[in-house]
Design a protein around this nucleic acid. Structure first.
Lengths: 205, 205
DNA sequence: CACATATGTAAGTGTCTCTAACTTAAGCAA
DNA sequence: TTGCTTAAGTTAGAGACACTTACATATGTG
Protein backbone atom coordinates (compact mmCIF):
# COMPACT_ATOMS: atom_id res chain seq x y z
CA UNK A 1 0.00 0.00 0.00
CA UNK A 2 2.91 2.32 0.57
CA UNK A 3 4.28 1.92 -2.94
CA UNK A 4 1.19 3.10 -4.76
CA UNK A 5 3.15 5.90 -6.35
CA UNK A 6 5.10 3.67 -8.74
CA UNK A 7 2.43 1.02 -9.20
CA UNK A 8 0.44 2.76 -11.86
CA UNK A 9 2.74 3.48 -14.76
CA UNK A 10 6.42 4.05 -13.87
CA UNK A 11 6.83 7.76 -14.60
CA UNK A 12 3.60 9.00 -13.05
CA UNK A 13 4.67 12.15 -11.33
CA UNK A 14 1.75 14.09 -9.99
CA UNK A 15 -1.94 14.20 -10.65
CA UNK A 16 -1.92 13.43 -14.28
CA UNK A 17 1.36 11.64 -14.68
CA UNK A 18 3.87 13.10 -17.08
CA UNK A 19 1.51 15.51 -18.75
CA UNK A 20 4.47 17.07 -20.50
CA UNK A 21 5.25 13.89 -22.38
CA UNK A 22 1.65 13.18 -23.19
CA UNK A 23 1.14 16.67 -24.57
CA UNK A 24 4.15 16.28 -26.84
CA UNK A 25 2.82 12.93 -28.00
CA UNK A 26 -0.60 14.48 -28.63
CA UNK A 27 1.02 17.28 -30.62
CA UNK A 28 2.92 14.76 -32.69
CA UNK A 29 -0.26 12.86 -33.43
CA UNK A 30 -2.29 15.95 -34.27
CA UNK A 31 0.39 17.45 -36.48
CA UNK A 32 0.22 14.35 -38.65
CA UNK A 33 -3.58 14.18 -38.59
CA UNK A 34 -4.48 17.84 -39.06
CA UNK A 35 -1.34 19.14 -40.74
CA UNK A 36 1.39 21.48 -39.53
CA UNK A 37 -0.83 24.55 -39.40
CA UNK A 38 -4.17 22.91 -38.80
CA UNK A 39 -3.65 21.73 -35.25
CA UNK A 40 -4.01 23.57 -31.97
CA UNK A 41 -2.65 23.31 -28.47
CA UNK A 42 -6.23 23.32 -27.23
CA UNK A 43 -6.95 20.17 -29.21
CA UNK A 44 -3.86 18.52 -27.78
CA UNK A 45 -5.19 19.35 -24.32
CA UNK A 46 -8.46 17.66 -25.17
CA UNK A 47 -6.55 14.58 -26.30
CA UNK A 48 -4.58 14.54 -23.07
CA UNK A 49 -7.74 15.17 -21.05
CA UNK A 50 -6.67 18.38 -19.33
CA UNK A 51 -7.76 22.00 -19.39
CA UNK A 52 -6.32 24.39 -21.94
CA UNK A 53 -4.37 26.18 -19.21
CA UNK A 54 -2.47 23.10 -18.12
CA UNK A 55 0.33 23.23 -20.73
CA UNK A 56 1.57 26.53 -19.36
CA UNK A 57 2.80 24.78 -16.20
CA UNK A 58 5.23 22.84 -18.38
CA UNK A 59 5.92 25.16 -21.30
CA UNK A 60 6.30 28.90 -21.61
CA UNK A 61 4.23 29.23 -24.79
CA UNK A 62 3.19 27.61 -28.05
CA UNK A 63 6.65 27.99 -29.56
CA UNK A 64 8.16 26.22 -26.59
CA UNK A 65 5.83 23.25 -27.08
CA UNK A 66 6.59 23.08 -30.79
CA UNK A 67 10.30 23.37 -30.13
CA UNK A 68 10.18 20.51 -27.64
CA UNK A 69 8.22 18.35 -30.06
CA UNK A 70 10.71 19.18 -32.80
CA UNK A 71 13.58 18.20 -30.52
CA UNK A 72 12.09 14.75 -29.98
CA UNK A 73 11.54 14.41 -33.70
CA UNK A 74 15.14 15.41 -34.42
CA UNK A 75 16.28 12.72 -32.03
CA UNK A 76 14.15 10.15 -33.82
CA UNK A 77 15.62 11.30 -37.13
CA UNK A 78 19.15 11.05 -35.79
CA UNK A 79 18.50 7.57 -34.41
CA UNK A 80 17.16 6.41 -37.78
CA UNK A 81 20.18 7.86 -39.61
CA UNK A 82 22.58 6.25 -37.15
CA UNK A 83 20.98 2.84 -37.53
CA UNK A 84 21.16 3.15 -41.31
CA UNK A 85 24.83 4.16 -41.22
CA UNK A 86 25.77 1.41 -38.79
CA UNK A 87 24.14 -1.22 -40.97
CA UNK A 88 26.94 -0.99 -43.56
CA UNK A 89 30.75 -0.99 -43.33
CA UNK A 90 32.52 2.37 -43.75
CA UNK A 91 33.65 1.89 -47.35
CA UNK A 92 30.43 0.43 -48.73
CA UNK A 93 28.75 2.67 -51.34
CA UNK A 94 25.44 1.29 -50.10
CA UNK A 95 26.09 3.09 -46.84
CA UNK A 96 25.64 6.51 -48.41
CA UNK A 97 22.46 5.39 -50.12
CA UNK A 98 21.11 3.86 -46.91
CA UNK A 99 21.78 7.04 -45.00
CA UNK A 100 19.92 9.09 -47.58
CA UNK A 101 17.11 6.58 -47.67
CA UNK A 102 16.64 6.76 -43.91
CA UNK A 103 16.23 10.52 -44.19
CA UNK A 104 13.65 10.26 -46.96
CA UNK A 105 11.83 7.50 -45.10
CA UNK A 106 11.55 9.69 -42.04
CA UNK A 107 10.08 12.52 -44.10
CA UNK A 108 7.53 10.13 -45.56
CA UNK A 109 6.68 8.60 -42.18
CA UNK A 110 6.28 11.92 -40.39
CA UNK A 111 5.61 14.54 -43.06
CA UNK A 112 3.85 16.87 -40.64
CA UNK A 113 6.69 16.93 -38.14
CA UNK A 114 9.25 17.10 -40.94
CA UNK A 115 7.55 20.25 -42.23
CA UNK A 116 7.62 21.84 -38.81
CA UNK A 117 11.24 20.84 -38.27
CA UNK A 118 12.52 22.36 -41.49
CA UNK A 119 9.76 24.51 -42.89
CA UNK A 120 8.45 26.50 -39.94
CA UNK A 121 11.54 27.42 -37.99
CA UNK A 122 9.75 30.28 -36.29
CA UNK A 123 10.47 29.82 -32.59
CA UNK A 124 13.44 27.52 -32.77
CA UNK A 125 16.25 29.89 -33.58
CA UNK A 126 18.36 29.85 -30.44
CA UNK A 127 17.92 26.42 -28.91
CA UNK A 128 21.24 24.80 -27.97
CA UNK A 129 19.69 21.33 -27.62
CA UNK A 130 18.22 21.54 -31.11
CA UNK A 131 21.47 22.83 -32.55
CA UNK A 132 23.19 19.95 -30.78
CA UNK A 133 21.15 17.23 -32.46
CA UNK A 134 21.44 19.10 -35.74
CA UNK A 135 25.20 19.16 -35.42
CA UNK A 136 25.19 15.45 -34.56
CA UNK A 137 23.27 14.69 -37.75
CA UNK A 138 25.62 16.85 -39.75
CA UNK A 139 28.65 15.15 -38.24
CA UNK A 140 27.20 11.76 -39.02
CA UNK A 141 26.78 12.63 -42.69
CA UNK A 142 30.28 14.07 -42.79
CA UNK A 143 31.70 10.91 -41.26
CA UNK A 144 29.92 8.72 -43.78
CA UNK A 145 31.11 10.95 -46.60
CA UNK A 146 34.66 11.01 -45.21
CA UNK A 147 34.75 7.24 -44.83
CA UNK A 148 33.53 6.90 -48.36
CA UNK A 149 36.24 9.19 -49.69
CA UNK A 150 39.02 7.91 -47.49
CA UNK A 151 39.56 11.22 -45.74
CA UNK A 152 38.84 12.41 -42.19
CA UNK A 153 35.37 13.67 -41.48
CA UNK A 154 36.53 17.26 -41.14
CA UNK A 155 38.36 17.30 -44.46
CA UNK A 156 37.00 20.14 -46.63
CA UNK A 157 36.03 17.71 -49.37
CA UNK A 158 34.10 15.52 -46.96
CA UNK A 159 32.31 18.51 -45.50
CA UNK A 160 31.44 19.84 -48.92
CA UNK A 161 30.19 16.51 -50.24
CA UNK A 162 28.24 15.88 -47.07
CA UNK A 163 26.48 19.20 -47.51
CA UNK A 164 25.75 18.47 -51.16
CA UNK A 165 24.37 15.06 -50.25
CA UNK A 166 22.18 16.61 -47.59
CA UNK A 167 20.86 19.23 -50.01
CA UNK A 168 19.90 16.59 -52.51
CA UNK A 169 18.17 14.30 -50.05
CA UNK A 170 16.48 17.18 -48.26
CA UNK A 171 15.10 18.58 -51.49
CA UNK A 172 13.89 15.19 -52.63
CA UNK A 173 12.10 14.73 -49.29
CA UNK A 174 10.26 18.01 -49.63
CA UNK A 175 9.31 17.51 -53.24
CA UNK A 176 7.97 14.06 -52.50
CA UNK A 177 5.72 15.41 -49.76
CA UNK A 178 4.39 18.25 -51.87
CA UNK A 179 3.67 16.14 -54.93
CA UNK A 180 2.74 19.48 -56.39
CA UNK A 181 5.55 19.31 -58.90
CA UNK A 182 7.07 15.89 -58.53
CA UNK A 183 4.81 13.09 -59.51
CA UNK A 184 5.57 10.42 -56.96
CA UNK A 185 8.91 8.83 -57.73
CA UNK A 186 8.56 5.03 -57.54
CA UNK A 187 10.67 3.31 -54.85
CA UNK A 188 13.06 1.54 -57.20
CA UNK A 189 13.82 4.77 -59.05
CA UNK A 190 14.33 6.52 -55.75
CA UNK A 191 16.76 3.82 -54.65
CA UNK A 192 18.62 4.03 -57.96
CA UNK A 193 18.88 7.78 -57.60
CA UNK A 194 20.29 7.54 -54.09
CA UNK A 195 22.79 4.91 -55.20
CA UNK A 196 23.81 7.17 -58.05
CA UNK A 197 24.46 10.02 -55.66
CA UNK A 198 26.81 7.77 -53.72
CA UNK A 199 28.64 6.95 -56.94
CA UNK A 200 29.10 10.59 -57.84
CA UNK A 201 31.18 11.12 -54.71
CA UNK A 202 34.86 10.54 -55.49
CA UNK A 203 36.54 7.54 -53.84
CA UNK A 204 40.19 7.05 -52.80
CA UNK A 205 40.78 4.32 -55.41
CA UNK B 1 -15.47 64.46 -67.73
CA UNK B 2 -16.99 61.29 -69.08
CA UNK B 3 -13.73 59.34 -68.72
CA UNK B 4 -13.37 59.85 -64.97
CA UNK B 5 -13.52 56.12 -64.44
CA UNK B 6 -10.06 55.47 -65.85
CA UNK B 7 -8.49 58.72 -64.79
CA UNK B 8 -7.56 57.72 -61.26
CA UNK B 9 -5.38 54.65 -61.52
CA UNK B 10 -6.24 52.39 -64.44
CA UNK B 11 -7.69 49.35 -62.64
CA UNK B 12 -9.80 51.15 -60.04
CA UNK B 13 -12.92 49.07 -59.93
CA UNK B 14 -15.20 50.13 -57.14
CA UNK B 15 -14.95 51.96 -53.87
CA UNK B 16 -11.52 50.95 -52.86
CA UNK B 17 -9.95 50.14 -56.18
CA UNK B 18 -8.57 46.64 -56.66
CA UNK B 19 -8.70 45.62 -53.03
CA UNK B 20 -7.96 42.07 -54.11
CA UNK B 21 -4.57 43.01 -55.46
CA UNK B 22 -3.73 45.23 -52.53
CA UNK B 23 -4.59 42.48 -50.07
CA UNK B 24 -2.33 40.04 -51.86
CA UNK B 25 0.45 42.62 -51.82
CA UNK B 26 -0.14 43.22 -48.11
CA UNK B 27 0.02 39.49 -47.45
CA UNK B 28 3.27 39.24 -49.36
CA UNK B 29 4.75 42.06 -47.31
CA UNK B 30 3.54 40.72 -43.97
CA UNK B 31 4.67 37.18 -44.68
CA UNK B 32 8.21 38.48 -45.09
CA UNK B 33 8.00 40.79 -42.10
CA UNK B 34 6.24 38.57 -39.56
CA UNK B 35 7.10 35.15 -40.94
CA UNK B 36 4.97 32.47 -42.61
CA UNK B 37 2.96 31.68 -39.48
CA UNK B 38 3.17 34.99 -37.69
CA UNK B 39 0.99 37.04 -39.95
CA UNK B 40 -2.77 37.42 -40.08
CA UNK B 41 -5.39 38.35 -42.60
CA UNK B 42 -6.66 40.90 -40.12
CA UNK B 43 -3.32 42.67 -40.18
CA UNK B 44 -3.33 42.67 -43.97
CA UNK B 45 -6.73 44.35 -43.81
CA UNK B 46 -5.30 47.02 -41.55
CA UNK B 47 -2.50 47.59 -44.05
CA UNK B 48 -5.00 47.91 -46.87
CA UNK B 49 -7.22 50.15 -44.75
CA UNK B 50 -10.39 48.06 -44.82
CA UNK B 51 -12.43 46.13 -42.30
CA UNK B 52 -11.58 42.52 -41.49
CA UNK B 53 -14.71 41.34 -43.26
CA UNK B 54 -13.79 42.90 -46.58
CA UNK B 55 -11.55 40.09 -47.89
CA UNK B 56 -14.47 37.68 -47.97
CA UNK B 57 -15.99 39.56 -50.87
CA UNK B 58 -12.96 38.58 -52.95
CA UNK B 59 -11.81 35.28 -51.44
CA UNK B 60 -13.67 32.34 -49.99
CA UNK B 61 -11.38 31.91 -46.98
CA UNK B 62 -7.84 32.21 -45.62
CA UNK B 63 -6.60 29.31 -47.72
CA UNK B 64 -7.93 30.96 -50.84
CA UNK B 65 -5.97 34.14 -50.06
CA UNK B 66 -2.79 32.18 -49.39
CA UNK B 67 -3.25 30.15 -52.55
CA UNK B 68 -3.66 33.29 -54.62
CA UNK B 69 -0.57 34.86 -53.07
CA UNK B 70 1.36 31.66 -53.73
CA UNK B 71 0.23 31.68 -57.36
CA UNK B 72 1.66 35.17 -57.86
CA UNK B 73 4.89 34.10 -56.16
CA UNK B 74 5.16 31.04 -58.39
CA UNK B 75 4.80 33.28 -61.40
CA UNK B 76 7.60 35.51 -60.12
CA UNK B 77 9.74 32.42 -59.59
CA UNK B 78 9.03 31.15 -63.09
CA UNK B 79 9.85 34.54 -64.58
CA UNK B 80 13.17 34.65 -62.75
CA UNK B 81 14.04 31.14 -63.88
CA UNK B 82 13.12 31.93 -67.46
CA UNK B 83 15.26 35.05 -67.53
CA UNK B 84 18.20 33.10 -66.12
CA UNK B 85 17.81 30.33 -68.68
CA UNK B 86 17.45 32.76 -71.59
CA UNK B 87 20.63 34.57 -70.59
CA UNK B 88 22.79 31.70 -71.82
CA UNK B 89 22.87 29.62 -75.03
CA UNK B 90 21.44 26.09 -74.84
CA UNK B 91 24.73 24.20 -74.64
CA UNK B 92 26.48 26.45 -72.13
CA UNK B 93 27.22 24.72 -68.78
CA UNK B 94 26.77 28.12 -67.13
CA UNK B 95 23.13 27.91 -68.10
CA UNK B 96 22.41 25.11 -65.63
CA UNK B 97 24.24 26.96 -62.89
CA UNK B 98 22.39 30.19 -63.66
CA UNK B 99 19.04 28.43 -63.54
CA UNK B 100 19.85 26.95 -60.15
CA UNK B 101 21.18 30.26 -58.91
CA UNK B 102 17.96 32.03 -59.87
CA UNK B 103 16.00 29.54 -57.78
CA UNK B 104 18.25 29.99 -54.75
CA UNK B 105 18.18 33.76 -55.17
CA UNK B 106 14.41 33.73 -55.12
CA UNK B 107 14.37 31.72 -51.91
CA UNK B 108 16.75 34.21 -50.34
CA UNK B 109 14.81 37.22 -51.59
CA UNK B 110 11.41 35.92 -50.47
CA UNK B 111 12.07 33.34 -47.77
CA UNK B 112 8.64 33.80 -46.22
CA UNK B 113 6.76 33.20 -49.43
CA UNK B 114 9.12 30.40 -50.41
CA UNK B 115 8.27 28.62 -47.16
CA UNK B 116 4.56 28.97 -47.78
CA UNK B 117 4.93 27.83 -51.39
CA UNK B 118 6.77 24.63 -50.56
CA UNK B 119 6.48 24.13 -46.83
CA UNK B 120 2.85 24.77 -46.03
CA UNK B 121 0.92 23.20 -48.88
CA UNK B 122 -2.21 22.98 -46.77
CA UNK B 123 -4.91 24.54 -48.93
CA UNK B 124 -3.28 24.34 -52.32
CA UNK B 125 -3.78 20.72 -53.27
CA UNK B 126 -6.17 20.92 -56.17
CA UNK B 127 -5.48 24.20 -57.89
CA UNK B 128 -5.10 23.83 -61.66
CA UNK B 129 -3.50 27.26 -62.05
CA UNK B 130 -0.86 26.45 -59.46
CA UNK B 131 -0.20 23.07 -61.02
CA UNK B 132 0.12 24.86 -64.35
CA UNK B 133 2.91 27.18 -63.25
CA UNK B 134 4.55 24.28 -61.42
CA UNK B 135 4.51 22.24 -64.60
CA UNK B 136 5.93 25.19 -66.55
CA UNK B 137 8.84 25.42 -64.12
CA UNK B 138 9.43 21.69 -64.35
CA UNK B 139 9.36 21.81 -68.13
CA UNK B 140 11.84 24.66 -68.14
CA UNK B 141 14.31 22.70 -66.03
CA UNK B 142 13.82 19.64 -68.24
CA UNK B 143 14.47 21.69 -71.35
CA UNK B 144 17.66 23.14 -69.92
CA UNK B 145 18.79 19.67 -68.87
CA UNK B 146 17.86 18.21 -72.24
CA UNK B 147 19.70 20.94 -74.14
CA UNK B 148 22.71 20.36 -71.95
CA UNK B 149 22.68 16.63 -72.64
CA UNK B 150 21.81 16.89 -76.31
CA UNK B 151 18.52 15.03 -75.98
CA UNK B 152 14.88 16.16 -76.21
CA UNK B 153 13.33 17.58 -73.05
CA UNK B 154 11.09 14.56 -72.56
CA UNK B 155 13.92 12.05 -72.80
CA UNK B 156 13.98 9.92 -69.63
CA UNK B 157 17.55 10.97 -68.88
CA UNK B 158 16.70 14.65 -69.16
CA UNK B 159 13.66 14.22 -66.93
CA UNK B 160 15.66 12.30 -64.34
CA UNK B 161 18.53 14.77 -64.28
CA UNK B 162 16.15 17.70 -64.16
CA UNK B 163 14.50 16.21 -61.11
CA UNK B 164 17.87 15.54 -59.46
CA UNK B 165 18.96 19.11 -60.16
CA UNK B 166 15.75 20.43 -58.69
CA UNK B 167 16.13 18.30 -55.55
CA UNK B 168 19.61 19.61 -55.00
CA UNK B 169 18.79 23.25 -55.50
CA UNK B 170 15.55 23.00 -53.53
CA UNK B 171 17.30 21.41 -50.58
CA UNK B 172 20.08 23.96 -50.66
CA UNK B 173 17.51 26.76 -50.64
CA UNK B 174 15.77 25.40 -47.57
CA UNK B 175 18.95 24.70 -45.67
CA UNK B 176 20.23 28.19 -46.36
CA UNK B 177 17.07 29.74 -44.96
CA UNK B 178 17.06 27.61 -41.84
CA UNK B 179 20.71 28.14 -41.04
CA UNK B 180 19.92 25.70 -38.26
CA UNK B 181 22.31 23.15 -39.68
CA UNK B 182 24.04 24.80 -42.56
CA UNK B 183 26.27 27.63 -41.57
CA UNK B 184 25.75 30.14 -44.34
CA UNK B 185 27.52 29.00 -47.46
CA UNK B 186 29.49 31.94 -48.91
CA UNK B 187 28.43 33.09 -52.40
CA UNK B 188 31.53 31.94 -54.23
CA UNK B 189 31.28 28.47 -52.75
CA UNK B 190 27.60 28.37 -53.64
CA UNK B 191 28.42 29.34 -57.21
CA UNK B 192 31.14 26.69 -57.40
CA UNK B 193 28.73 24.09 -56.10
CA UNK B 194 26.10 24.97 -58.68
CA UNK B 195 28.68 24.90 -61.45
CA UNK B 196 29.80 21.50 -60.25
CA UNK B 197 26.26 20.18 -60.43
CA UNK B 198 26.12 21.26 -64.03
CA UNK B 199 29.34 19.39 -64.71
CA UNK B 200 28.06 16.20 -63.16
CA UNK B 201 25.34 16.00 -65.79
CA UNK B 202 26.56 13.97 -68.76
CA UNK B 203 27.04 15.83 -72.08
CA UNK B 204 26.74 14.50 -75.66
CA UNK B 205 30.46 14.93 -76.39
C1' DC C 1 1.11 18.17 11.07
C1' DA C 2 2.36 22.44 8.92
C1' DC C 3 4.13 24.30 5.05
C1' DA C 4 6.13 25.27 0.54
C1' DT C 5 5.75 23.96 -3.91
C1' DA C 6 4.24 21.50 -7.99
C1' DT C 7 0.40 20.83 -10.78
C1' DG C 8 -4.06 21.32 -11.98
C1' DT C 9 -8.81 24.22 -12.93
C1' DA C 10 -12.14 28.09 -13.93
C1' DA C 11 -12.81 32.30 -15.73
C1' DG C 12 -11.51 36.10 -18.42
C1' DT C 13 -8.84 38.99 -22.10
C1' DG C 14 -7.45 39.99 -26.63
C1' DT C 15 -6.99 38.35 -31.26
C1' DC C 16 -8.24 35.78 -35.16
C1' DT C 17 -11.29 33.69 -38.87
C1' DC C 18 -15.51 33.78 -40.74
C1' DT C 19 -20.75 34.83 -41.05
C1' DA C 20 -25.06 37.55 -41.18
C1' DA C 21 -27.41 41.61 -41.89
C1' DC C 22 -27.16 46.09 -43.35
C1' DT C 23 -25.46 50.19 -46.27
C1' DT C 24 -23.73 52.49 -50.05
C1' DA C 25 -21.67 53.04 -54.67
C1' DA C 26 -21.82 51.90 -59.70
C1' DG C 27 -23.79 50.54 -63.82
C1' DC C 28 -27.82 50.05 -66.53
C1' DA C 29 -32.68 50.35 -68.48
C1' DA C 30 -36.50 52.97 -69.56
C1' DT D 1 -33.33 61.70 -64.04
C1' DT D 2 -35.46 57.69 -61.66
C1' DG D 3 -35.33 53.25 -60.06
C1' DC D 4 -33.52 48.44 -60.07
C1' DT D 5 -29.78 45.17 -59.55
C1' DT D 6 -25.57 43.97 -58.06
C1' DA D 7 -20.79 44.69 -56.39
C1' DA D 8 -18.13 45.94 -52.55
C1' DG D 9 -17.86 47.71 -48.38
C1' DT D 10 -19.45 48.20 -43.11
C1' DT D 11 -20.75 46.83 -38.20
C1' DA D 12 -21.78 43.33 -34.95
C1' DG D 13 -21.20 39.00 -33.36
C1' DA D 14 -20.19 33.77 -32.94
C1' DG D 15 -16.79 30.48 -32.06
C1' DA D 16 -11.89 29.05 -31.53
C1' DC D 17 -7.52 29.80 -29.77
C1' DA D 18 -3.31 31.49 -27.06
C1' DC D 19 -2.32 33.03 -22.92
C1' DT D 20 -3.02 35.19 -17.96
C1' DT D 21 -4.72 35.55 -13.38
C1' DA D 22 -6.52 33.84 -9.36
C1' DC D 23 -7.67 29.99 -7.04
C1' DA D 24 -7.67 24.89 -5.54
C1' DT D 25 -5.48 20.66 -4.46
C1' DA D 26 -2.08 17.13 -4.24
C1' DT D 27 2.73 15.91 -2.89
C1' DG D 28 6.73 15.51 -0.30
C1' DT D 29 9.52 17.44 3.43
C1' DG D 30 11.08 19.12 7.82
Amino acid sequence: MSDTKSLVQAKKNYHHGDLRGQLLEAVRELVEREGPDGFSIAEACRLAGVSTAAPYKHFTDRHDILRSAVLLAMERLYAAMKIAADAHPPGDPARVAALGQSYVDFAKAEPGMFRIMFGMTEGQEDCPELSGVGEACKLLVEQVAGDHMGVPHDHPSAVAWAYALWCFVHGHSFLQMDDKLAQKVPPEQEARMLRMVGEVIPTPS
